[in-house]
Design a protein around this nucleic acid. Structure first.
Length: 438
RNA sequence: GGCUCUAUCGUCUAUCGGUUAGGACGGAUCCUUCUCAAGGAUCAAAGCCGGGUUCGAUUCCCGGUAGAGUCACCA
């Protein structure tokens, strides 16, 4: 066996934003290169001039930056035309390919393309994850490898680049498996050393078909913008199609570099389960330092008073999986006096006269209460609540503060709002209920 | 349809032929300060079918079935 230095590559085409499904392929390539002290290459496959866009290339690069997939080399196929030209010429000269006259059937087609002369043989290769695979290439025919010398096509460029860049391990999705025999044919004609293939399972949508945009799966950076952490994305992705063989679930990128085993990659596809991603994200959310949380939250919700935000932080975090969930929460009461009807203040076991009476006593108690923590507030109000019935006391208090049927508990709310604001809202509630009790 | 691949709870998965088939997400129930959230506890939930091989198959082999991928002058 040769002892070539491990070289892997990720070869996306910039014909769309960098899709989440591709993150796992990039991850496995990255991990494998790093754990073997090898090289990881990012190669932009932009030979399709019509569909390739600079903005998509920028999106790919930004996604790699965000995820922390540092690459050692970067290439653009559009800048390698001369290299391909030389190889195509070589193929033609040696009789492995030929210029073929074509009948133009569709608009845009050429009357002449370059085809590979198929030797019609049985191609065998051993895949790291799938095992031995045998394909009769006869039914592939003489496939097109370039439009002309200046315009090479996918199969040709992949083989030339993988060969010239000394790629030792081709780790890619199983949707490429049908391409492999073709590429091996070209590779043999060109005389390159065969890489080791590892066709990793596809990431599936809930309907078990290949995940794509039409399933609502987003581009990688859109998950970032929703407030997902890259640690969560990486951790989650690593566990689709791979596992450490035991019950561990949390892995940092560094841990994955040492733990990941290409041989342990699954054969079958795995569904992209967004709920599990959310769960991972929650885990990493809870590990964020306070300062980061504070500045991130400010981008999603506006707080008039910074100190309110700071006191509300644990309560806010506890109710979300990702920052964007904040948008689905009704948070306006933190900064604005809530609107609600007087009847809403009355607990189901109580009545408005009783509630009015309780409210006035609650105000008295809280006016002298210690507001240094929600525990201290609870301490001053608890015995009264026990005496009069918890719901009778707690419900109107909470409603007066939040104006919501569902919210954090009244002690937490009072603590977050502060004594002055709490008393003010309670007084408003009292007046409100007074207006309907005579 | 051809070719190729796959097959354990709803989902991600563990099991190197012998297990009460384990864990996690999600779900359900209960507890925990009024509601919610969070947390804790408990529970339900799987070997596609049929043949072999074997003392013994989820595990190995074959067939079936089902599903997926791919069949461009895209990548």
């Amino acid at each position: 066996m040769s002892e070539r230095k491990v070289v892997t590559r990720m070869a996306p085409s910039p014909t769309g934003k960098f899709h989440v499904g591709s993150v796992r392929t990039a991850l496995f390539n990255y991990l494998f290169a790093r754990q073997n002290g090898g090289k990881f290459i990012l190669r932009i496959e932009d030979t399709d001039k019509e569909r390739s866009k600079k903005e998509y290339e920028a999106d790919i690069i930004e996604a790699f930056d965000w995820l922390g997939f540092e690459y050692d080399e970067f290439y653009r196929q559009s800048e390698r035309t001369e290299i391909y030209k030389e190889q195509i010429q070589k193929l033609i000269d040696q009789g492995y390919a030929y210029i073929s006259k074509e009948e133009v059937k569709e608009e845009g087609q050429r009357n002449s393309v370059i085809r590979f002369k198929n030797p019609n043989k049985l191609v065998k290769f051993s895949d790291v994850v799938l095992g031995d695979i045998e394909v009769d290439t006869t039914d592939l025919g003489d496939f097109v490898i370039a439009k002309d010398l200046e315009n090479p096509l996918y199969h040709l460029t992949v083989v030339v680049d993988d060969g010239l860049m000394d790629i030792t391990h081709v780790i890619r999705g199983q949707d490429h498996i049908a391409n492999t025999p073709r590429q091996i044919l070209i590779l043999e004609a060109l005389g390159f050393q065969r890489p080791i293939y590892a066709h990793i399972p596809l990431i599936l949508a809930p309907d078990k078909t290949k995940l794509s945009k039409r399933h609502g799966a987003l581009a990688t950076l859109e998950y970032r913008d929703l407030g997902y952490f890259k640690e969560a994305i990486i951790n989650f992705m690593a566990l689709i199609g791979w596992n450490p063989g035991d019950d561990r679930e949390f892995f940092t990128k560094e841990e994955l570099i040492t733990e990941f085993k290409l041989e342990k990659v699954q054969k079958g596809g795995g569904v992209f389960n967004i709920e599990k991603l959310d769960w991972f994200n929650k885990h990493y959310l809870n590990k964020q330092p306070k300062e980061k949380l504070l500045s991130a939250i400010k981008q999603y919700v506006k707080f008039e008073d910074e100190s309110v935000l700071e006191r509300a932080l644990p309560t806010l975090i506890e109710r979300i999986n990702k920052y964007n969930d904040l948008q689905n929460e009704n948070l306006s009461f933190y900064s604005h006096v809530p609107e609600y009807g007087a009847d809403d203040l009355v607990w189901r076991d109580s009545d408005k006269f009783q509630t009015k009476e309780f409210l006035s006593q609650i105000i008295k108690i809280l006016e002298t209460a210690d507001f240094s923590s929600n525990e201290s507030i609870k301490k001053s109000l608890w015995s009264f609540a026990e005496e009069k019935g918890r719901g009778n006391v707690l419900w109107p208090t909470r409603y007066a503060l939040s104006g919501l049927p569902k919210s954090p508990d009244p002690f937490t709310l009072a603590y977050i709002l502060g004594k002055a604001e709490t008393i003010e809202r309670l007084n408003k509630a009292y007046k409100k209920i007074e207006s309907i009790t005579f």
